[in-house]
């Protein structure tokens, strides 16, 4: 096993905009969720931070560091990767 760091850039395979979410994500609605194929090949699921109207199958995205969730007002904050449009990403 060898650790490998992905560049994080990729292409949207399919997507949705979520209007009704679980309690943890309700404050974000509407938000975009996509299946993204990373340039190295593997696919994953992640949010894309842009307006619902600008989402397209085949659009290029790049990774952005964001808050993913919180355990209440005083609890632990989870950070992780979301994606942003990157038409100029190589």
């Amino acid at each position: 096993m060898e650790e490998y760091r992905f560049r994080g850039t990729g292409t949207v395979i399919t997507y949705t905009t979520i209007y009704s979410a679980t309690e943890d994500f309700e404050r974000l609605t509407p938000y975009n969720l996509a299946i993204i194929q990373l340039d190295e090949g593997p696919k994953l699921t992640g949010q894309v931070v842009c307006s619902p109207e600008s989402m397209k199958i085949g659009m290029r995205v790049r990774p952005v560091f964001r808050i993913l969730g919180k355990e209440g007002e005083r609890g632990i904050i989870y950070y992780g990767t979301k994606f942003a449009p990157a038409e100029d990403a190589p």
């Binding site: 997507y15 949705t16 979520i18 679980t22 974000l28 969720l33 199958i57 979301k82």
Partner: peptide, 23 residues
């Protein structure tokens, strides 16, 4: 860990299938 943690819901997963099927 790989879907719900990032905000996936069940309708969202099937919606992504639907969009690609339509395309």
């Amino acid at each position: 860990e790989w879907e719900c943690f990032f905000g996936a819901t069940f309708p969202a997963l099937y919606a992504m299938i639907a969009r690609l099927h339509m395309r």
